[in-house]
Nucleic acid binder design. Structure first.
Lengths: 198, 198
DNA sequence: ACAATTTGATACGATATCGTATCAAATATA
DNA sequence: TATATTTGATACGATATCGTATCAAATTGT
């Protein structure tokens, strides 16, 4: 329903404000969530005025949606540039796992996950979009590496959730695991799935 | 810092109000989260007056904390009454998994998980308490069934996260898996962990 | 250089929140 | 029965929110 008739064509100044609003609001939303951040606060921190937010994004929810979409797409970009053609099954899984976890354990991503889950009832479509470009994408990359074996898709989900879930839960409650603990789990999970019929 | 000097000794009426407030507020918080529910609304739906909330719980946050503690402890109670002494490793895991997922896939639990994760930055200790009586408890039961094998604790976490994570993610975005899909995952995970050196 | 559009600063209305305070009604206690 | 305590209903102050409206300043295009 976003009606673009009222959208001004952006100046250089307007474009700068557009990006600045997104940048500032991103940090505020990540730090405190959607509800706890007011538009007035975003504008105080950004400069300019609310005019921009309402003309360019339609309002607070539109701004939030734009921010979530940008963030979600960024976290997993390193995963697509790996070349695993010479790696063994176990080694390849371990490399995938480490690359993935290096991204997901960043405080920004932890904050993002908290933010998106907290509003998943209010914005289910945003959560769905996150899932597609987040967990689902990771699982696809893993499944592609596993090849065409039966149940490859399910095994990819298993591997993903084995190495990701508990670490993120701990991080969410301010008790992130050490990196060596993360690596230990990746090794164990890789070994588990590398075995013949697995 | 909850100072109990101002807490009245509860009447029969007072006790009834105490429980009624918790019951009403529980449903409201589950439905819409901590921030979106106002105390005035809780009282409108409960009857009585805000006097009770402030004298008995200290305020909105105290009420929320009490509610989270009660809910968290309830979800997994069925898990402790299972007798798996005659079950094979694979069958026992499957039974544990099904019992667990029957609880976790309930809409009330999905709402609870969304609620607790959304406020995990504001109330990290509440999230920690949830983790202890939730995932950690489940993992303990699973580990106990697996016995004293090396890495049993880690395998229990793996099994738990393999069957739980993806289903809950889908449920959170309003796309809960069918029960037969849940069972298929439980079977696959049980088989995976039932193999000799697993 | 001048007119049209976009952006900035600010004020406003309507509404809502939390926590406290007041005083009347109901209940418990002596 | 008389007194003390708890509960109910309500009002209040301070503060905050969103979305809109107004009008001046800056920038763009002709």
């Amino acid at each position: 329903m976003s009606d673009r008739r009222d959208m001004p064509r952006l100046n250089a100044r307007g474009l700068a404000r557009h990006e600045m609003i997104i940048k500032t609001a991103t940090e505020l939303f990540l730090a405190r969530g959607f509800d706890a951040v007011s538009l007035d606060e975003v504008i105080r921190a950004t400069g300019g005025s609310k005019t921009n937010v309402y003309k360019q994004f339609g309002g607070k929810e539109g701004l939030f949606a734009e921010i979530v979409r940008r963030l979600a797409a960024d976290f997993l970009s390193p995963l697509t540039t790996l070349d695993l053609r010479t790696a063994s099954r176990e080694t390849g899984l371990a490399i995938l796992g480490r690359t993935l976890m290096q991204q997901l354990m960043q405080p920004r991503h932890i904050a993002f996950q908290r933010m998106i889950m907290g509003v998943s009832d209010k914005f289910p479509e945003l959560m769905a979009e996150w899932y597609r470009v987040g967990p689902q994408k990771s699982q696809s990359v893993i499944a592609a590496f596993l090849g065409d074996e039966p149940d490859g898709k399910r095994l990819a989900i298993f591997f993903h959730d084995m190495i990701v879930t508990d670490a993120i839960n701990h991080a969410l409650m301010g008790d992130a695991p050490t990196w060596s603990e993360v690596e230990a789990r990746i090794s164990a999970a890789s070994a588990l799935l590398a075995r013949p019929s697995g």
